[in-house]
Structure formats: C-alpha cells, structure tokens
C-alpha cells in the first residue's frame, strides 16, 4: 500500500475534500489514499469519543468510509461538506449501536473505563493521559445526545448550525444540549478531581 510521495500526492493533500472525492470517483487511486489519510483520523476520533470502545469505533469508521466510497460517484458537489456528511453518518451509526446496547441494558457505569489511580506525583505525560481518561469516562456518563453535541462542539470544533445539520435538530436544541452536557461534565469531573489528586497542583 505504499504510494510514491511525489508532487502529485502533495498537491492532493492541499485539495478540498470534495475535489478529492470527484477524483476518487473518476478512478484516481492517489485520491483514495489522500482521502483515507485525511478523513479516517477525524472519523475515528469522533466515533471513539462517542463509543468509548476502540474496536467498535474502528468498525464504525470503516462502515462510514465504506458509505462514502459508495456514494462518491453520485456525490452532488456543493450540496454538503464531505466532513459534515461523514459526521452525520457516524452519528447515525453510533446511535444505532447505542440503541442495541441500551436494549441489552447490560452496560452500566461499571463498564466505564477505569480511571488510573496513580495521579499524584506521576510524570506529566501520565497526568495528561489520566486527564484524557477522566474526560472520556465523564463523557461516557452523559446521555447520548448530550455527548454527541458536546463532542461535536468542543472536541471537533464545529459550529452550532453544522451540529444542527448533523444531528437533525434546531440550533436552539444544540445550544441547550451542549450547555447541559458541559454542566454535567464539569460536575462529574469536579467530583473525580479529588480522587485524582489534582486539586493541590494549582
């Protein structure tokens, strides 16, 4: 799977998503590589935050990208951004999986990833890793829609209208979801702060 990194691939790295998708649909293999390299990390990052299960997030990523490859020849340029379309697909795929999960009702807070307990006096990288684990654990406790809105707004850095399009709701609903989600997160994390031993570092 090694492609020669010549000027052509570098030019492709600067091209907009949509242009690459058109090239892909015309049979350009380098465009396939460029799109994969660019989009998979974003899609995986978002899916992993929603699912907090790496293997499941990878499956969702592959499925979302598969749908992109399939729609590429019929893609209507100028109608939607590729990234927004992908976020929407991932959100729907994750929602479907979470519905199945909730139906099983097997997963409770017991299954939330354990927060490492060696915070006090640990090296900086370790503390950072702990903080990320704490954030993921706190996100996992939010209701699904709140988690989606918070992740899209604060971790993927999207605007409220974009999130509204992705989640199929109005912008007021997005604002309400992100505000509530953020409040809950802060409450969960401040509850955990004591346990992690961070309050005496400030």
């Amino acid at each position: 799977m090694d492609m020669p990194r010549d000027t052509t691939t570098e030019a492709l790295d600067d091209a907009p998503d949509e242009a690459l998708l058109v090239l892909y649909a015309n049979g350009d293999r380098l465009a396939a590589t460029a799109l994969t390299r660019r989009l998979v990390p974003r899609v995986l990052g978002y899916a992993a935050r929603l699912l907090s299960d790496r293997a499941e997030a990878e499956d969702v990523t592959q499925e979302a990208m598969l749908r992109l490859w399939k729609i590429a020849p019929a893609w209507r340029t100028g109608e939607a951004q590729v990234s927004t379309w992908l976020y929407r697909v991932v959100t729907n795929l994750v929602t479907d999986r979470q519905r199945v999960r909730h139906r099983r009702a097997a997963t409770t807070l017991d299954d939330a990833p354990e927060v490492a307990d060696e915070g006090r006096g640990a090296v900086a990288g370790m503390i950072e890793a702990d903080r990320m684990a704490a954030l993921d654990a706190a996100l996992a406790q939010l209701p699904d829609r709140q988690r989606q809105a918070v992740v899209l707004r604060h971790l993927e850095g999207l605007s409220n209208p974009e999130i509204a399009a992705i989640m199929d709701i109005g912008t007021e609903a997005v604002e309400s979801l992100t505000a509530r989600g953020k409040r809950s997160l802060a409450a969960i994390l401040s509850g955990q702060k004591a346990a992690l031993g961070y309050e005496d570092e400030e």
Partner: peptide
C-alpha cells in the same frame, strides 16, 4: 483533548484503503 488527534492503526487504514480500491470505479 483537541490537541491529541486519534491515531488510526495501520490495520484500520489498510481495511479502509482495501474498501476504497475495491469500490472505486
């Protein structure tokens, strides 16, 4: 968290690329 982008495994990248080439017109 934003400063730490997800790093996909080579296996995942391979799976996605295989799909891409298989479905490419």
């Amino acid at each position: 968290a934003r400063a730490r982008p997800a790093v996909p495994s080579d296996a995942l990248m391979g799976r996605v690329m295989a799909d891409a080439l298989a479905l490419q017109p």
